[in-house]
Amino acid sequence: MTPFRTLRGIAVPVDGANIDTDQIIPARFLLRRRTPDYGRYLFHDLRFDTAEQGRGFVLDRPDYRGAVILVADANFGCGSAREQAPWAIQAFGIGAIVASGFGDIFYANCLKNGLLPAVVEPDVAARARALLADHPGSAMTVDLDRRTIVLPDETSVSFAVDEAHRRRLLDGKDELSLTLADAAAIDAYEAKRRVELDWT
């Protein structure tokens, strides 16, 4: 995984609480291969009609082209466990999501893929979205080292992120390769567990 330190660039606002992962990537694309155009599936049905014509969704507005940060509302990524949701977001070019809350499984899935979910207070997320709507194409900065976000009006706010995940993102370390070092502890646990579960 590429280490994550600071991300600066255009931010795009996506309004609405409880944006579920079925919106982020509809189920009919879950078996698709992760080809270079995978970002097309992101918010597919909000962006394209049944004839594949653009609906003018915020992500496709020229002002927000090249966005690297997505600013959402509460409970973003609730619902299904599909890891294809963060895959599609990353494939579109987004590296960080700022929201007042995330679905728990989606949150974990983002982190495993090096996509930063930054939690801010609801009024901060609302202010950021309003600024981005009023000044389309303006940039924000997400600084993982200092846990700060610079909003389009140049004010700086702090965000919350799980410390263990912050370290892993900063180091670009992959969780599984780290856990393999725990093999002996897992072996020992399994031996103890077999005795404990003598009824199995």
Binding site: A108, N109, K112, L176, L180, D182
Partner: peptide, 20 residues
């Protein structure tokens, strides 16, 4: 626990899961 596919891969390899 509902998990993602990276976590499923982690379990396949280690039979474990990191959780806070």
């Amino acid at each position: 626990l509902g998990i993602g596919m990276s976590e499923s891969t982690h379990i396949l390899a280690t039979q474990t899961l990191w959780q806070r």
